[in-house]
């Protein structure tokens, strides 16, 4: 059974179509990269999966369960963890408290177990040294990592990463991909929206390209990048930098 199954998902804001009958599946433990120009509907799709947005039509199943009418908080408890493109830390809480909230609510952990779940998430993302820092005082890299720690502390089966490498330097991106590879090896399924295509190529085995709310290509990452449809969307030019990260 697929872990995640989207069928004919449509969503529009007035005249802007962000999803036009999108369908795809994701198997447990696998990774999917999503690319597409700005406004293609990438983040909106995450909103539809995580429950921040309601689709106008179509069904989403997670682990066989229909998600229609299931609240965002319940979806998280079912195993869908997400990060936001613009990090949304709880600014007045410490880094540890940020992860602890996720462990206590999302993973339903109690007492000292919740401490362990939270701290484990911080350690996997390299945030443990900053455990007692107020989240509001963090810089961009650490805010991005905190997003990841918090999503991880909910103990997800599916992790939705929204441009978690955006705005970071190459060495920072490289560090982040190492973290993500570690998560993949522990069996978490990942959907990763990213403009930094090099980061995707080093981690995902499948790539999906969205444009104007529709899937225009889906499959092997290199084949997807080489396809006519994708080239056309990116104005035909070789704008996408495929060179491996160094």
């Amino acid at each position: 059974m697929s872990l995640l199954q989207l069928e004919g998902i449509s969503k529009r804001f007035g005249r802007v179509v962000v999803a036009d009958e999108i369908s795809f599946q994701l198997e447990p433990g696998t990774s999917l990269g999503i690319i597409g120009p700005n406004g293609a509907g990438k983040s909106s799709m995450f909103g539809l999966i995580s429950g921040d947005l309601k689709p106008d039509a179509g069904t989403i199943r997670f682990n066989g369960t229909e998600l229609l009418g299931v609240k965002a908080s319940s979806r998280c408890r079912m195993g869908i963890g997400r990060t936001y493109q613009i990090p949304q830390p709880f600014e007045h809480l410490t880094v540890f408290e940020n992860a602890l909230l996720a462990a206590q609510q999302g993973a339903r952990a109690r007492g000292t177990e919740s401490y362990d779940v939270a701290y484990d998430a911080l350690r996997r993302t390299g945030m443990d040294e900053l455990a007692n820092r107020p989240a509001g005082s963090l810089g961009l890299l650490h805010r991005k990592r905190l997003e990841l720690s918090r999503a991880l502390a909910t103990r997800p089966r599916l992790l939705l990463l929204d441009e978690i490498a955006g705005g970071l330097t190459d060495p920072e991106v490289l560090g982040l991909t190492e973290v993500i590879k570690d998560l993949q090896s522990s069996g978490i399924a990942i959907i990763w929206i990213e403009h930094v295509v090099r980061a995707l190529l080093s981690t995902v085995s499948r790539l999906l390209c969205l444009a104007n709310g529709t899937v225009i290509a889906d499959g092997d990452p290199h084949e997807v990048l080489a396809s006519e449809a994708v080239r056309a969307v990116y104005l035909g030019g070789k704008i996408i930098n495929e060179a491996p990260l160094s």
Partner: peptide
């Protein structure tokens, strides 16, 4: 405290 800081993030953290 988390809800007070960021309600949407709190919801998506469960």
């Amino acid at each position: 405290s988390s809800m007070r800081d960021n309600e949407i993030a709190a919801r998506s953290a469960g």
